[in-house]
């Protein structure tokens, strides 16, 4: 078991390293010179441009730049922003709590709505609650966040005036963004859990449980749900990626602080070290969460525990 966990951690490290190399290469290949956004080519002399290129190290061949970048990464140096020479890592760390709060609140929304509706709709198949659940599922996965976010803003902030339209201070500013983002996850989870519950309910052992004289409630919540959750847990791991990607849009729409906002701004300004840094940071978060999910799997499903 311990060996398996160490093995997983090692592959996780490989994934992080691989993904950041990939991002570095893609950014390198993108058209557009970062120097152009710092120095206006119509005014700067070619000597100035060349010296800035040299200063930034972008005149070096790809492999040298890559080695340089990773060498610094190992020392915890994410590089400096091109725009204001601020170090990237402290900036990410200072903004991350806001994103974490958003992601956590959204995850709570997604899991509560998703699991609850998923289970209820499977138990009361083809009843009104099932119809509602299916509609929530459909809306959740098909409404883009920038659209549903604006819709919520219009209704609850502008017309009703219950909640603030923007900012990231206090819980009130968190409500609408986390519902917007959480609905997406809820949509996926409702469908997933409904399907896997319906599958489990048809398993032979459910008949055994009924023949033992157990109540429907303990059959559904103690036995069927635990079996149905097994595939859903993987899904929750992947939702974290969904949340991080969603944060870019949500933080912009609701004018919140956070790493999503940082990367959105950095992309606009071609501030490559910042883009690179946020992606690297997100990759670490994503991979760690999925590592935790994999390990928690073995607590839910004894068959996995034996196999590892």
């Amino acid at each position: 078991m311990v060996g398996a966990v160490i093995g997983r951690m090692f592959t996780s490290l490989l994934v992080v390293a691989g993904s950041s190399v990939l991002v570095f290469v893609i950014l390198y290949l993108l058209p557009g010179d970062p120097v152009n956004s710092l120095l206006d080519p119509t005014f700067a002399t070619s000597e100035q441009i060349a010296s800035l290129r040299h200063q930034l190290g972008v005149d070096q061949p790809l492999h040298v730049q890559l080695a340089d970048y990773f060498g610094k990464l190992l020392h915890g140096d994410f590089g400096n922003s091109l725009l204001n020479s601020e170090p990237v890592l402290p900036r990410i760390l200072s903004q991350f709590p806001a994103t974490l709060a958003l992601a956590a609140a959204s995850a709570v929304v997604a899991v509560v709505i998703g699991v609850l509706l998923g289970v209820l709709s499977a138990i009361h198949r083809n009843k009104p609650i099932d119809v509602i659940a299916r509609i929530v599922g459909l809306l959740g996965i098909s409404m883009p966040a920038f659209w549903s976010g604006i819709l919520l803003l219009l209704v609850f902030s502008i017309h009703l005036g219950w909640l603030p339209t923007m900012g990231s201070n206090g819980w009130k500013t968190l409500v609408l963004p986390s519902i917007t983002l959480g609905l997406i996850g809820a949509g996926f989870l409702v469908r997933m859990i409904r399907n896997s519950m319906l599958e489990v309910v048809n398993e032979h052992f459910i008949v055994t449980l009924r023949s033992k004289g157990l109540s429907e409630r303990s059959i559904m919540y103690r036995h069927a749900l635990r079996n149905a959750l097994i595939p859903a847990v993987t899904m929750i791991g992947m939702l974290v990626g969904e949340m991080l990607a969603g944060a870019v849009v949500i933080e912009t729409v609701f004018a919140r602080q956070g790493i999503g906002r940082i990367i959105a701004d950095a992309i606009m300004a071609k501030d490559l070290p910042v883009v690179q840094g946020v992606i690297f940071f997100s990759a670490i978060i994503y991979v760690s969460v999925n590592l935790i999910v994999d390990i928690s799997y073995s607590f839910i499903d004894p068959r996995v525990r034996r196999a590892t």
């Binding site: 052992f205 008949v207 055994t208 023949s211 036995h223 079996n227």
Partner: peptide, 18 residues
Amino acid sequence: GKKMAMVFQEPMSAFDPV
């Protein structure tokens, strides 16, 4: 389960695996 009980064909799938 009390007065009448049942044993099934597929013992492998008759127990809750978790």
